[in-house]
């Protein structure tokens, strides 16, 4: 409700998830092609990357108050959202073109020079798309949980992790191979360490308002989501599965990594509702109607 200061909703978190994962998939497809040849990623995985970015863009449009005016977000070159929108568009284009080189019946399938140029373009735009949600959030000075460069690393890491897991899933489901278990395990360890340090630093090394919201992740409203879902189900359980030799539930690990990534984004976006309050503001807002009261309905 507006009195409660309406903020970004779950659809933006879903946009961050799909765009980050898709951007990383596009970049990883380009990297694997340039350095390891065509064998590391499945063709369908290369196509799914840009599709995921497009899905993220779709959720972003749905989050808008006036979705039919969505084209206007391309209009202010100084805004980081505009920068992100252009990059998503470019990444989708480069991602599809790069993936299309795998279709032998297309006339440009053998143009190696074009494939290499598209791979480089995919890497650049894909990495930007994978990183920019963190940059977008980190620049918000007045949102204590987001502010600072730390969130950029966490979003980039999560994008790479989910993108790699998605490629791994595509490989195992459609190409009958898994290539990235050890790499995924390493990234999961990094995710646990970096999230632990981020929360620790927010709790102890920054301002009181940052410590207040970070404490919610340790033992407050977000604690179950942080410990049980993000670190437990989304990180440690798949980490154990990936480290098991020749196990039959590798697919489950990939799915858990994706769920953990989506959940992390939702919690981070939700934590942005905690603003730096002005004197007396929190108490004032707490006394206003929430919006579902009968008298408000009658007035409307």
């Amino acid at each position: 409700m507006k009195h409660k200061e309406t903020t970004w909703g779950w659809m933006l978190a879903v946009d961050f998830f799909f765009a980050g994962m898709g951007g990383a998939m596009i970049a990883l497809a380009g990297i694997s092609y340039l350095f390891f040849g065509d064998a590391l990623t499945a063709t369908i995985g290369n196509f799914i990357g840009p599709i995921f970015v497009a899905m993220g863009a779709g959720f972003l449009v749905l989050e808008l108050g006036r979705p039919l005016q969505a084209w206007r977000v391309f209009m202010n070159p100084k805004a980081i959202l505009t920068f992100g929108a252009w990059n998503m568009t470019l990444a989708i284009g480069f991602g599809f073109v790069f993936a299309s080189f795998r279709i032998a019946s297309l006339p440009w399938a053998g143009w190696v020079w074009a494939q290499q140029i598209t791979a480089v373009s995919s890497i650049i735009t894909g990495l930007i798309v994978a990183t920019y949600p963190g940059v977008l959030l980190g620049r918000h000075n007045a949102r204590p949980f987001w502010t600072g460069p730390g969130i950029v690393s966490l979003f980039l890491l999560s994008s790479l992790l989910t993108g790699l897991a998605a490629h791994d899933l595509a490989n195992s489901l459609f190409a009958n191979t898994t290539n990235f278990s050890k790499l995924l395990a390493g990234l999961l360890v990094l995710q646990v360490v970096l999230w632990g340090l981020y929360i620790y630093m927010k709790c102890t090394g920054t301002t009181n308002r940052e410590a207040t919201i970070a404490q919610q992740w340790v033992n407050g409203d977000f604690a179950v989501g942080f410990w049980a879902i993000l670190l437990g189900l989304g990180s440690l359980v798949p980490l154990i599965i990936y480290l098991l030799p020749s196990n039959p539930i590798m697919t489950l690990a990939g799915i858990l990594v994706l769920l953990g990534g989506a959940w992390m984004r939702w919690m981070v976006v939700k934590s942005g509702e905690y603003r730096t309050w002005l004197p007396g503001e929190e108490f004032y807002l707490s006394r206003l109607p929430r919006g579902d009261e009968e008298f408000l309905k009658a007035l409307k």
């Binding site: 108050g65 006036r66 977000v73 959202l81 000075n141 603003r275 730096t276 002005l278």
Partner: peptide
């Protein structure tokens, strides 16, 4: 006329 309701400004404003 130009506003699409993306709420980027809502999140950016430190003063609510």
């Amino acid at each position: 006329e130009k506003c699409v309701g993306c709420k980027a400004c809502v999140m950016a404003c430190p003063y609510g």
